[in-house]
Amino acid sequence: MAAATLTKGKRRRKSNFGQDNLVGYLFIGPWLIAFFLFTFIPISVSLLLSFTDYNVLANSGDFIGLDNFQRMFFEDRRYWRSVNATVKYVVFSVPLRLVFALAVAMLLNTYRRGVGVYRAAFYAPSIIGGSIAVAVMWREIFGNDGLVNFTLNLLGIEGPNWLGRPETAIWTLIILAAWQFGSPMLIFLAGLKNIPKHLYESAEIDGANSLQRFLRITLPMLTPIIFFNLIMQLISGFMVFTQAFIVTQGRPLDTTLFYALYVYRRAFEQNEMGYASAMAWVMLMVIAVLTAFVFRSSSYWVHYEADEGT
């Protein structure tokens, strides 16, 4: 039955909301041009390099088959530590960021006086960037007598030496990520604004309480945006670089050696661009599979107003 309606639906749309190759390619033309001019070559070259021992300074390398992959999987202990750190980071920071972002967006989606100021404040940690002053600042905040331990002290808890202990260092970066929830928050805010008001009005007439309104209207209407934020947070979580680069440099004991940081180090500190490219492509495969999985799942939980089947 489902299949029948689907094909029927498709045919209907084909005829009246038509397939149009020329118009489609005109619209995505700018992207295609930029892709083939500026992105296609570097990406393909990096794929080729991953099968070589290309060294940046020598500007040459030999084809070595799968040696780079064998090396990273079986011979490089730091590689697995970087995998470990990255997975831990993704597993904790992605849900934390999304929950914070959604909660705060809900809180700030009002007409109250001063809400603009609050939004700016909540967005502030996300725009302070990655300069060296910021590195000093994060260290100060998580330092022995910095803001975090000072606050814990007020609550009667003796804080650890956050950045110095192998058990806690990665948590500072996870907390830092949760703190910088500004970009998914803004996207949620924009999404909330797009929910038609009349839906709430009619729900209120039906006597729905606020929790019901949230579950029946806000959440379903927001699923395309939640889906987007989930995918993008997943991708950027795996590619996390700046925080570790400026604050911990992978220490202590490689517990914060994020994958992208290790790739960068192999590429530009040891000049082993071949090996670095191989590592990057392995990560790309992993992210691509995960993303595809989330896309597959989306038909079960993402609600589109314009459901015309991608």
Partner: peptide
């Protein structure tokens, strides 16, 4: 050493 890691290369 722990303290030096916490302070970092500043």
């Amino acid at each position: 050493y722990e303290d030096s890691v916490a302070r970092g290369d500043q």
